[in-house]
C-alpha cells in the first residue's frame, strides 16, 4: 500500500468502479430522502387542490342553477299575479256592464209596466166615465121627458153620441 504521483489521462483505474458505487449510493440516498417524499407530497397537494377546485366549481354551478331556478319561479309568480289581476279587472268590467244592462232593463220593464197600467187605468176610467155619462144622460133625459125612457133603446143611441164626444171632448179633457 503506497502512494505515488500518476499522469492524469493515462490512469484509468479503480476510481471508475468506486465512482459508480458512489453514484449509486448517492442516487439511492437522494431518491429515498428527497425526491420520493417531495414528489409524493407535491402530487398529494396537487390532487387535493384539484379536488377542491372541482368541488368549488360544482358548488358554483349549483348556486348558479339555484339562482336561475329562483329567478324563473319569481318570474312565473309575477306573471301569474299579473294574469290574476287582469282576469279580475275583466270580470269586474263584465259584472259592471251586466249590472248596468240589468238596471236598464229593469227600468225599461218598470216603465213599460207603468205605461201598461196607466193605459189600462185610462181605458177603465174612460169606460167608467162613459157609463156614468150614459146613466146621467138617461137620467137627465127621463127627467126632462118625464117618463121612463127605455134604457136599452137609448143607450145604443147615446153610445154613438158619446163615441163622437169622446173623440174630441174626452180626449181633450184627459
Amino acid at each position: 500500500m503506497h502512494l505515488e504521483w500518476g499522469k492524469v489521462v493515462k490512469s484509468l483505474n479503480w476510481t471508475f468502479i468506486f465512482n459508480l458505487v458512489n453514484f449509486a449510493i448517492l442516487l439511492y440516498l437522494l431518491k429515498r430522502l428527497l425526491f420520493k417524499p417531495a414528489i409524493e407530497y407535491l402530487d398529494r397537494r396537487r390532487e387535493q387542490v384539484a379536488t377542491r377546485m372541482e368541488t368549488t366549481r360544482k358548488n358554483e354551478e349549483q348556486a348558479k342553477k339555484l339562482v336561475a331556478e329562483r329567478m324563473e319561479a319569481l318570474q312565473t309568480a309575477y306573471e301569474q299575479s299579473r294574469r290574476i289581476v287582469e282576469t279580475a279587472r275583466v270580470q269586474a268590467e263584465e259584472i259592471i256592464g251586466q249590472g248596468k244592462d240589468d238596471a236598464k232593463k229593469e227600468v225599461e220593464h218598470i216603465l213599460e209596466n207603468a205605461q201598461a197600467q196607466i193605459d189600462q187605468e185610462r181605458t177603465e176610467a174612460g169606460q167608467e166615465l162613459r157609463r156614468s155619462y150614459a146613466e146621467i144622460a138617461v137620467l137627465g133625459a127621463s127627467r126632462v121627458l118625464g117618463r121612463e125612457v127605455n134604457l136599452e133603446d137609448h143607450r145604443r143611441l147615446l153610445d154613438d153620441l158619446l163615441s163622437e164626444l169622446e173623440e174630441d171632448t174626452l180626449r181633450m179633457k184627459l
Binding site: M1, H2, L3, E4, W5, G6, K7, V8, S11, N13, W14, T15, F18, N19, N22
Partner: peptide, 23 residues
C-alpha cells in the same frame, strides 16, 4: 501539474489502485 495522487493497494495476490483524492 497535470498529475494526481494514486493509492496502490495490494490485498494478498489481488492488487488495485485508485485516486485517493478523487474518491
Amino acid at each position: 501539474l497535470g498529475e494526481k495522487l494514486i493509492l496502490h493497494v495490494s490485498l494478498g495476490s489481488f492488487s488495485f489502485s485508485f485516486d485517493i483524492l478523487t474518491v
